[in-house]
Amino acid sequence: MLPGGYSEFFSSLRAFLPPSRLLHDELSRLAYGTDASFYRLIPNLVVKVVSEEEIIRVLAESCRLRLPVTFRAAGTSLSGQSLSDSVLIVLAGAWKRYRINEDASRITLQPGVVGAHANVYLAPYRKKIGPDPASINSAMIGGYRRKQRQRHVLRHGAEQLQDDCLDEDHLR
C-alpha cells in the first residue's frame, strides 16, 4: 500500500520504531497534511520521533533511499514550511527538556518546548526569552528558530532591540 521506496523505508524503520509511531493510514496522513498556512500536502508516511537517536537513524535511512523529509514541531507556521508530500517527521511528546545556567543569562531548550513555557521557567529569575510572537502560547522553539532571525538587524543597523526581535546576543 505504501508507494515506491516508502515500503522499504517503512520496513527499515519498523526495526526500531513501534507501529503506533509510523502512520500511513488515510486518516492520519490527512490529519498531518495541514499547518497554519493555506497550503495542504498529504504525507505518504508520518514518523513520530521521541529522541535525537531516532532522528539520526530515520535520516540515515531516508538519505539512503533518497526520500524527502520535513520536520514539524507545533505546525503553527504560516508560510507552508511544515508540510510534506513525502515523509513528515513529527516531534512527539518528548523534546521538552530545558536547562538554565546559574545566573539565568542563558536557557537551553529542546525544540518541543512551547515559547510561553520557556518564559514560565525563567519567570522566577525575572528573565524571558527574546522572541514574543503572537503564537507564543502554542508555537514551539523548533519553529522559533525558523521564524525569528531579526537579531541580524541589530548587528548592522545598530538599532534598538524591539518587541519580537531577537537580539544579536539572544541566541548562541
Binding site: Q81, R106, L122
Partner: peptide, 21 residues
C-alpha cells in the same frame, strides 16, 4: 541554520541568551 526552515538540517537543541523581564 537560523531561519533555514528545516531545509539545511534539524536543530535538536538551542541556547538562548535571556533578556530581563
Amino acid at each position: 541554520m537560523i531561519g533555514s526552515e528545516g531545509t539545511l538540517g534539524f536543530i535538536a537543541e538551542v541556547t538562548y541568551n535571556t533578556v530581563p523581564d
